[in-house]
Nucleic acid binder design. Sequence first.
DNA 1: TCACATAGTTACCTATTAGTAACTATGTGA
DNA 2: TCACATAGTTACTAATAGGTAACTATGTGA
Lengths: 112, 112
Amino acid sequence: MTELKYLELPPCPVATTALLIGDHWKILIIRELLNGTKRFGELTKGLDGISNKVLSQHLKVMESRGLIERRVYAEVPVKVEYSLTDIGWKLKPLIHEMWQWGELYKSIEANK
Amino acid sequence: MTELKYLELPPCPVATTALLIGDHWKILIIRELLNGTKRFGELTKGLDGISNKVLSQHLKVMESRGLIERRVYAEVPVKVEYSLTDIGWKLKPLIHEMWQWGELYKSIEANK
DNA sequence: TCACATAGTTACCTATTAGTAACTATGTGA
DNA sequence: TCACATAGTTACTAATAGGTAACTATGTGA
């Protein structure tokens, strides 16, 4: 879901979450922001291989859905900071579970 | 990730999980199978609007990655059952977190 | 012999997503 | 005046994912 438009939420909460963040890049953007506020360029560095275009699209959609906040500083060169909103921070346990399960999966793969 | 091929796992566990199940349909397939073993046709009914082709592709990839198991019964007409593997079941807390967060998000949206 | 049911497969097409590379805006300081 | 840095945007193209509808295999029973 990269497109910016009105979203009808599905009845199932799992489907709702899948719709909002069930996407490779969005998950990793949240992972980055769980380490604190980041600038655009810092996010680019943390997200291996993401292009300006794709990062900027995802940030816009996530902001419009209330997951992250964008703050512009009138400095030169301009400084823009992204951070999680309250509800964005509530994704922390979910990302934590992803971390746990990913480690488990990797350890099992490694012992094959 | 619908394609069936050798997967190099990323160093980050979160990225690993995102790679394996960070996808709308796979999340919902797991949600379905957390309610127990299901036949192909039952999955189709539970996954609103999924086509035969897409369901079958995802099931194949998930089986090859060790998340689900496929069991064929020599009945007529043929009966095929899908279920979670051990590591598949370990996704339960993650899906539970998705449920929780989805409910929270929906309740906030509803009060806007 | 034929229709039925399940569990797919296949060919073809469309839609969505991502990648690339060049370009924009802005104020500063050499 | 010109280059610099940040944070994008834009046009174009490529890759991936999904939709549709018809088709396959199999043994049963009318």
